[in-house]
Design a protein around this nucleic acid. Sequence first.
DNA 1: GAGTAAACGAGACGGTACGTCGAGTCTTTTC
DNA 2: GAAAAGACTCGACGTACCGTCTCGTTTACTC
Lengths: 200, 200, 200, 200
Amino acid sequence: MPNDSDDRGSRPRTARSYSTIIEATMAALRETGYHDLTIEGVAARAGVGKATVYRWWPTKPKLVVEAIRYSLDNQRPGQVPLVSDSGVVARELVRRIVDRMTSPVGRMIAAMSLDLYGDPEAAHELSAILETYRAKDIQVIFALISRGDLPHDVDPHVLIDIISGTALACVLVGRGARAALVDQLTDLVLEGRLPRTMTG
Amino acid sequence: MPNDSDDRGSRPRTARSYSTIIEATMAALRETGYHDLTIEGVAARAGVGKATVYRWWPTKPKLVVEAIRYSLDNQRPGQVPLVSDSGVVARELVRRIVDRMTSPVGRMIAAMSLDLYGDPEAAHELSAILETYRAKDIQVIFALISRGDLPHDVDPHVLIDIISGTALACVLVGRGARAALVDQLTDLVLEGRLPRTMTG
Amino acid sequence: MPNDSDDRGSRPRTARSYSTIIEATMAALRETGYHDLTIEGVAARAGVGKATVYRWWPTKPKLVVEAIRYSLDNQRPGQVPLVSDSGVVARELVRRIVDRMTSPVGRMIAAMSLDLYGDPEAAHELSAILETYRAKDIQVIFALISRGDLPHDVDPHVLIDIISGTALACVLVGRGARAALVDQLTDLVLEGRLPRTMTG
Amino acid sequence: MPNDSDDRGSRPRTARSYSTIIEATMAALRETGYHDLTIEGVAARAGVGKATVYRWWPTKPKLVVEAIRYSLDNQRPGQVPLVSDSGVVARELVRRIVDRMTSPVGRMIAAMSLDLYGDPEAAHELSAILETYRAKDIQVIFALISRGDLPHDVDPHVLIDIISGTALACVLVGRGARAALVDQLTDLVLEGRLPRTMTG
DNA sequence: GAGTAAACGAGACGGTACGTCGAGTCTTTTC
DNA sequence: GAAAAGACTCGACGTACCGTCTCGTTTACTC
């Protein structure tokens, strides 16, 4: 919750309204998805005047971005996959990314991203959030590099784009996510082995 | 324009309205993008009653899907990348896919796909269209296989998902498309070489 | 049903469509009243094209007028109140007129009449129908004159307007129809006795 | 403008929108009549959002009823016919009522009354308005009684129904209003003399 | 404490688009 | 050549949210 600074004699932002609005936003997102989320609905659900929402989040994507950030901050640390057997860590990384993009949250983030065309400010905030996810993934990639499972100069960002993007493409534009995808991507990442047809 | 079938004795669909509506849709898409496209606006632009649009395309995605199909059907054959040097063909394939996903049309398709939640019929039609693109790409992949540039049992679909998805991820969820991407993906596809950092 | 006459070589007006349309109109009138009756609904109910209705009855009031005429023609002769005791005949006349104007048909006719503003042709047909009712009433009035119950030079039309109008006013603009109305009007007509308050 | 009551802390109804809407309604009524009056047209004419009209008057009759009330309240007191010669007062009363029912306003009220089927709330408000007219007429009737021109126990309501109803019947259901009507009704009211035919 | 100024709930406001319905006209095929 | 089916343009329906605004109230700060 940002700066409640030194305005003289004025009432600061009510803590209550901040969190109820954000929580109402999360609840609405879960129920109706990004597209059907309305500011009016959020305000009603939070028992808050519409103007109060607009005062702090002038656009819908800004509101949703903050709701996502909030829910990330307040969620448990996120169990880092413990380093164990050789291929298992990589596989776990791939699975995690694929699951993330395939889940409703993935769709939601994609939808928002498309709605951000004329709102670079919110776009920036969204990418900052995505960095949070990404940072954790990159740590795992470094671990894989240090064990020698990946080349020392691999570009972790593009690697993540490949994994998350392939998952995204299957969902948005391709033929749906398939069980084999995690295996195929793991092979690709670890061994540079291109995906083979099943019938072989 | 689909089946003007065997409804006996009734006035058939006016050819004019079909094409003006579709063309108005394309024009509006180009100007305002998918999100801000309005049935009412399309009707007005086409000089047509709103009900006429709704009669044939009960939802916005259905209308857009058909507009895309129409514009694909009526566009020139699509320059097939002539087979020349060894790596050039693969590079050209990758470039084509990346450009496609990075272009406004790519965003549009992604946006539509997200709006298709709960409209499986339109979703099916959209994927049928995407197959059109995909089929051409697969032909190129087969060419690459027969020259020995790719393993004989590679899964062309997943390959395409990898390429298009990575591009999509850069645009939607990653850090923007970069010039090097085409090279990196070409290397990945041809040699299984994971992307390296520039600073190396 | 008008002339299905000697136009040679042309397909005669289908008797079926004539009566089904009229009967559908009557049914719709009974169910929804004049205001909510739609040509489209009548056509659908009759299993007939909209244009077929429009061909023969270019406006809604014209259609309704004919439906009313048809239903009058096909109803039983209408029992003429037999002449009996002195005041009874007059009272029966008043009751009949009051009932007519107070019934749903009365409202319907009034509604149609208001809808006839720019359709003098239909207005003329409607008044022709109303003459049918009126002619019977006038016969009774003549009977009353010849028995000496009414002055020999009374204007029967205005008399009927007084009776029917008073009933209409109670329903449309006044305080509702009341039981005493028939008695009061009978007194007025027979004896020129103005209505008295009940509390007297 | 009705109760801007005790809703605490909420923005009160804007006075401007109230009166511009009502005045736009009156203007539209004058131009197009009741049937062709459109909520959308009223909103446009008033330079107001459609929803603002619907917020306060959920149905067309409710809006029109209020417009009529407003225009009555804001019109000059209404010239009371000064008591002068014997028959003149009664004649003036009859003329006033007949004119009222024969005028466009009369048609409008009748039309609305027919549209009120199923909207008893609005019906009640309409009749309250009509009482306003009626009350003035009743005062004149009392004046006539006290001069001995009418029986002391005459029912003023039915008397008014007779006069206004006869006029209404001529317009709606009879053979049109005629000049002699005022004379005939005056005779009927003052002397109990039934209307005679002209040719006598 | 008293004053004060912004935050707040409530919701009215002018708009835009929604998706539906009916009006009245027009076009094609069938009988 | 009339009838049927129904496509067409048009305009209004009543609803939902948009983003802005104006209220009256509440509340934490400063003096």
